[in-house]
């Protein structure tokens, strides 16, 4: 075809790969790659939690009515949060564990707030694959360690919410929370 431009390698003034056309080509490719990357990120990030979803992430509740040995479940970010007022025996069993023996070593003290040692607050989601462990109701099985028992694949947690047996890799997560006053807790 007489009217088409000569083939790229036969054109230009410099050595191989050093023509103005090569330069333009490389600039175009680079711009294209950067531009594509700049477009991909908004697409991906649009799938992350939106602002309104994030704004739902603080709750406040009262534990005034909670008695020793009782549990309540509150909902935070669409997940249950277990609040347990532990009995002295439960507390002692949680504190007496040798941390070295644990899969996810954490002391009981590091999982509660100072001065509120008996109140354990953990996210009630099994760290294996996300089922809700049993143990909030008096009639529920609590496993061999007196905490919670996950029915899905049999993970067992102790009275500090620490993983003791089964496939779960980590302790029940302690959410970020503060005691607003002695009977009010804010999570988030």
């Amino acid at each position: 075809m007489a009217n088409t431009a000569p083939a790229h390698s036969m054109h230009g003034d410099g050595a191989d790969g050093d023509t103005r056309r090569d330069f333009l080509l490389h600039m175009t490719i680079a711009t294209g790659v950067v531009g594509t990357a700049m477009m991909v990120w908004p697409l991906v990030d649009s799938m992350n939690p939106a602002a309104d979803t994030l704004s739902l992430s603080t709750i406040e509740f009262s534990i005034a009515g909670l008695k020793e040995g009782q549990d309540i479940t509150v909902v935070w970010r669409g997940k249950p949060v277990f609040v347990r007022y532990r009995t002295p025996e439960e507390l002692k069993s949680a504190q007496d564990v040798d941390v070295k023996d644990l899969r996810d070593p954490q002391t009981d003290a590091s999982r509660v707030k100072k001065g509120h040692d008996a109140i354990l607050i953990v996210v009630g989601v099994c760290t294996h694959l996300g089922c809700i462990p049993l143990g909030q109701k008096a009639t529920d099985p609590r496993g061999e360690f007196g905490g919670w028992f996950c029915p899905c694949h049999g993970s067992q947690y102790d009275a500090s919410g620490r993983i003791r047996k089964g496939p779960a890799p980590a302790n029940l997560e302690v959410p970020p929370y503060t005691f607003v006053n002695d009977t009010t807790v804010r999570i988030g």
């Binding site: 991906v44 799938m47 992350n48 939690p49 939106a50 979803t53 970010r77 669409g78 997940k79 989601v125």
Partner: peptide
């Protein structure tokens, strides 16, 4: 997982 969910658990998003 958060990216897949668009939140903090399986939910409307």
């Amino acid at each position: 997982v958060t990216l897949l969910w668009g939140g903090f658990s399986v939910d409307n998003p």
